[in-house]
Structure formats: structure tokens, C-alpha cells
């Protein structure tokens, strides 16, 4: 009888073994390192500015621009797959666009910081263990 009980337990464990976490979305992700900073325009924190990271390496795995938006304190952190997960290793040019209006899409920075080819702001992610890139406070001057 004790043997029967043992078998019962073994069986139930087998059934329960199937229950587990489902596979995560997008399993083949690049390894990313957090990149963050604070954006000031003409001396004060700017909210709602779109910050774009344009990959510069010819053989970068990700070729599209990765964008994020500054919060009410002007803080931003790059997001590739998940909120604030950062960027894969590589060189990036950083551009800024502060769009106003829902339909007009006029840039309050007058398009001065929009072109990745002319951008003076860049970031380099090496991809080393535990790396965290802090861009500090970026000051933009529109005047």
C-alpha cells in the first residue's frame, strides 16, 4: 500500500512538472546596457523631448534608430526591448526633437538637433559586464 502511495505522489509530480513560466517574448535579443541622462533646454529640464540613438557601426546588429522620450524632470533612459534596458554595444549619434502640437509636429528646437550627421552628441556602449552609461546633463541651447 505504501508503494501505491509513492506511485501516486510520483504521478502527481509528473503532472505538475508541465506547469511553468511561458517563454519570454522576443527570445533572441541583443545584450543591452543601460544608458541614461538628463536633458536641459536653455537651462531648464525639458519634458516630452524625443531622444533618438542612431547606430553608427556599419555591422551593427540593430540598424534602426532607438528612441525614448524625456519625462517631466527631463530624465531619459534608452529603451530597446523593455523600459530602460539600454542599448546594445556600439557607437551611436544622439539627436533630439521637441515636437509640439498634435498635428503640426513643429520642432521647438527648430530642427537644430535633429540631424544625426550633424549631431555633436554621441554615446559609446562597450558592452562590458555591469556597464552603465550615464550621459549626465545634456544642455541644449536654442538661442
Amino acid at each position: 500500500m505504501a508503494r501505491c502511495l509513492t506511485w501516486c505522489v510520483v504521478f502527481s509530480v509528473c503532472f505538475l512538472a508541465g506547469c511553468g513560466k511561458p517563454a519570454p517574448l522576443l527570445p533572441d535579443r541583443e545584450v543591452t546596457k543601460p544608458v541614461s541622462g538628463v536633458l536641459h533646454v536653455d537651462g531648464s529640464p525639458a519634458a516630452g523631448v524625443e531622444v533618438a540613438f542612431h547606430p553608427q557601426d556599419a555591422n551593427a546588429k540593430i540598424k534602426y534608430k532607438i528612441t525614448t522620450t524625456t519625462d517631466n524632470d527631463g530624465k531619459f533612459s534608452a529603451t530597446t526591448y523593455e523600459s530602460g534596458d539600454g542599448l546594445p554595444a556600439g557607437e551611436y549619434k544622439v539627436t533630439f526633437a521637441w515636437l509640439e502640437g498634435l498635428t503640426t509636429q513643429k520642432d521647438r528646437l527648430k530642427g537644430k538637433f535633429k540631424n544625426p550627421k550633424k549631431s555633436e552628441h554621441s554615446v559609446s556602449v562597450k558592452g562590458t559586464e555591469g556597464e552603465k552609461v550615464d550621459l549626465g546633463t545634456i544642455e541644449l541651447k536654442t538661442k
Binding site: 516630452g48 528612441t67 522620450t69 523593455e82 523600459s83 498634435l102
Partner: peptide, 25 residues
């Protein structure tokens, strides 16, 4: 992004039900 946040990202089904991104139509 896969957690529903962000401006745009690779996840298009069941990540967020936002019809319009914050600040846009």
C-alpha cells in the same frame, strides 16, 4: 517595448492597448 512602454518597439500584440502615443493623435 515588450513591457508596453516606450514610443515604438518590436511588440505589437498584447503589450499595450494605447491607441495614440502620449503627445500624438
Amino acid at each position: 517595448a515588450t513591457d508596453g512602454t516606450g514610443n515604438n518597439g518590436p511588440c505589437a500584440i498584447n503589450c499595450s492597448n494605447s491607441r495614440a502615443r502620449f503627445g500624438r493623435l
